[in-house]
Design a protein around this nucleic acid. Structure first.
Length: 469
RNA sequence: GCCCCCAUCGUCUAGCGGCCUAGGACACCACCCUCUCAAGGUGGCGGCACGGGUUCGAAUCCCGUUGGGGGUGCCA
């Protein structure tokens, strides 16, 4: 077997759920790999045992599966590769590229302040010849001179003066490796060819490069730093202040296809301007070097538009199937009153109206609830503002609906007979009936709704509303 | 403070020296369609941050300014 030309990795840290930024990073890695016929592997960066939560690993996997981003091989867990990292650290120590340090964070900070506020480690233990011991860490000896640079696929040449890099920790006092070290070792061990990640990691790149060099790692890594996804204030999306968990979007009724498609437009655009299109086409058109370098705002409105397009594109069975959890689990009606066959009659009408699957119940709840939930604003607008018309229309409907043929077409004709007789717009005439029967001014087409509801229930609701006037 | 990155409509983008009086999409506005709401159709609003160069010619190349952002942890 020949090694693939391209092998990329997505390396989440299980300190939280998969968020929008991580999903986009995973997607771009995946797009690049699939487009190149390469491999996309996973690596769990859980060297920080304090923060990593094992149970989140599975959540991240499931989110990736939901997005449809399949990975190659078995995910690697850094927490299980301690010996590899220790060996690398020992090698660095042996070659003088690293040294032991017993400075506490407070001491480092205090000296920095004494120096005049320039933060960072001052190399205090560089020549002290310390060995392992309680509270000792291992630091990487950064060359005093020279520059460490790389050619970023997206940003071009990026260069750092080594003098500006401090001697950073590669092994914590508790014995675990820091991520720069693990990163360098794993990228080499897993045969990674391209590192595609967020721009927030661009400044750790020289550290990883320095470690690779000191370790004598053969081959070269190509970097591509993706623009950050930002909030309305143009700050990096944060789990704290922003609403960014992929799981939350699943719960709100977004389709994976819409999410993936939308995410692909953040930092990249197809040359022909057609944004909404099958993933396979995006794979075909996507080129890493075409990715933008400036931050992109996560626009939920546009995501919703994409979602609406994808929902309308579903076949009826697909739409019904995708709606399932909103029809059974948290539906606003008693489970025993729900009937799929009835829902399927209205489903096509609902499908072209919703942008989110979570909106589905709101369009059909009047059918499955014993009584319609009256929306006060709707009642006010239609019944209270124009009581005479409401009374007249309701009385007309009660009479006309009592013995006509019960189908949408006939219902429309008999109700709108009132329009013709009194010269009142159809829109005005349907409103009182709609509010009386469904509780709202907005909903699926009225006559189809009535047909599904049935004559008895329709008349009962009209009478109830009439009594309330 | 220091280091790094970025800069086309409100937003996401196309543009990679002449096809640009800058194209598309979302949002917004108007009109059409219409039983409500959507969907759909038509039209509209709206942008190359600024200043210098380079060039016959710059949104596109270079420099500077300004403005954003990221990093600066024994997090990743």
């Amino acid at each position: 077997m020949t090694s693939p030309v391209v092998r990329v990795r997505f390396a989440p840290s299980p300190t939280g759920y998969l968020h929008i930024g991580g999903a986009r990073t995973a997607l771009f890695n995946w797009l690049f790999a699939r487009g190149q016929g390469g491999q996309f592997v996973l690596r769990i960066e859980d060297t920080d045992s304090e923060r990593s939560k094992p149970e989140l690993i599975d959540v991240i996997f499931r989110s990736l599966e939901w997005l449809g981003l399949d990975w190659d091989g078995t995910p690697v867990h850094q927490s299980e590769r301690g010996e590899m990292y220790s060996a690398a650290i020992d090698a660095l120590l042996a070659t003088g590229n690293a040294y032991w340090c017993d400075c506490t964070p407070d001491a480092v900070k205090a000296r920095a302040e004494a120096r005049g506020g320039q933060p960072g480690y001052d190399g205090h233990c560089r020549e002290r010849g310390l060995g392992p011991g309680e509270g000792h860490v291992v630091r990487f000896r950064v060359p005093d001179e020279g520059t460490t640079a790389f050619d970023d696929v997206i940003r071009g040449h990026v260069s750092f003066e080594n003098a500006n890099l401090e001697d950073f920790v590669i092994k914590r006092s508790n014995g675990t490796p820091m991520f720069h070290l693990a990163n360098a070792v794993d990228d080499a061990d897993q045969g990674i060819t391209h590192v595609v990640r967020g721009e927030d990691l661009i400044n750790v790149t020289p550290k990883v490069l320095l470690i690779r060099e000191a370790l004598g790692t053969p081959g070269e890594l190509t970097f591509a730093h993706l623009p950050l996804i930002v909030n309305e204030k143009r700050q990096k999306l944060s789990k704290r202040r922003d609403d960014v968990s992929v799981g939350d979007y699943i719960d709100r009724g977004y389709l994976a296809e819409a999410m993936v498609n939308y995410l692909a437009t953040l930092g990249w655009g197809p040359p022909d301007g057609i944004e909404i299109r099958p993933l396979a086409e995006i794979v075909e058109l996507f080129h890493l070097e075409d990715v933008n370098s400036s931050g992109a705002f996560f626009d939920v409105k546009k995501l919703q538009h994409f979602n609406g397009e994808y929902i309308r594109d579903l076949s009826l069975p697909q739409f019904v199937g995708k709606s399932t959890r909103w029809l059974y689990d948290d539906a606003p009606w008693p489970a025993e009153r729900f009937d799929v066959a009835t829902f399927e009659v209205l489903a096509p009408l609902v499908q072209e109206r919703v942008k989110l699957l979570s909106e589905v119940p709101g369009y059909v709840d009047f059918v499955f609830q014993p009584d319609p939930t009256i929306d006060e604003a709707s009642w006010e607008k239609v019944m209270v503002k124009a009581p005479e018309l409401a009374v007249a229309v309701l009385d007309h409907a009660a009479g006309a609906f009592a013995d006509c043929t019960w189908d949408a077409a006939t219902l429309e004709v008999v109700l709108f007979a009132y329009s013709d007789e009194h010269g009142v717009a159809k829109g005005k005439v349907q409103a009182p009936v709609r509010v009386a029967v469904t509780g709202r001014t907005v909903g699926p087409p009225l006559f189809e709704s009535l047909e599904v509801l049935g004559r008895d229930e329709t008349l009962r609701r009209i009478a109830a509303a009439r009594a309330r006037l």
